[in-house]
Amino acid sequence: MAIYLYLDRESPIHRLHPVTKVSSLVLLFIAPMLVIHPVVLFPFLLFLLGVGVTSGCLTNLRRVWPFMVTLFTFTFLIWCFFYGGQREVFRLAGLRITQESMLFGLGMALRLVLLFFVGLVFLSTTRIEELTAGLQRLGLPYIVGFTLSLAFRLVPVFMDSALVIVQAQRSRGLDFGRGGPLQRLRKYLTVIIPVFMTALRKADGMAVALEARGFRAGQERTSCFRYSFSRLDGLALVAAVSFNVLYLMLRHWGMGLVG
């Protein structure tokens, strides 16, 4: 079962060093936080679309576009109601909708969609090993990185076992969609408890297997993955930094904000 968004492609973005990927992710998360005006955020959207096309990860957009539309609509509506402003357009249930609130709502909705898009590109082009390698090179202790990567690997195992249990319970006549909300919630116990028991049975065996392979032996760790920096990494970092500098300058000059 494919639960992660990673797409195995041979693109320049896929070939970037893990440290570049993690650093660019952080930098590209910061950039859209500096401005809010939708017009100013638009070039960032174009840049991300370009990266998406280059990396071949736009196919993942098809998987998540309903979510992105919901995110956009919900954020737009909520800020239309919560943002103040002077120039009233209309009133709804006693709440004022102003030109400023609509512009701000649009900017905030675009910002959140862009942040989601940055995450999507990262997840589509980065393997879990790369993520942990990148975090470790940036200072994350080995043991924490190892735990995180082990957890990532176990998710599909437990999801698969949950699906098997759901099917087994259904074949015994359990209807998860029947009854009130609390009754339905309680029916999940018939899935959660067996999944927990499977996990507990694995825990001890896994610990023994790890120790048998010299885990925590106190020696320096080696990895079969070798990553090297290239000119592409420099380019990617320059692009990510440029957006931050540009948006900081715009902000300093009083542009890119609403109201």
């Binding site: 043991i143 190892f146 735990t147 995180l148 082990l150 957890a151 990532f152 690997r153 176990l154 998710v155 195992v157 437990f158 999944v195 927990f196 996990a199 507990l200 694995k202 825990a203 001890d204 896994m206 610990a207 790890l210 120790e211 885990f215 925590r216």
Partner: peptide, 13 residues
């Protein structure tokens, strides 16, 4: 080691 494994198990569950 057992606590490390349990951390991973809690996270994945």
């Amino acid at each position: 080691t057992r606590m490390v494994v349990l951390t991973a198990i809690c996270a994945s569950l």
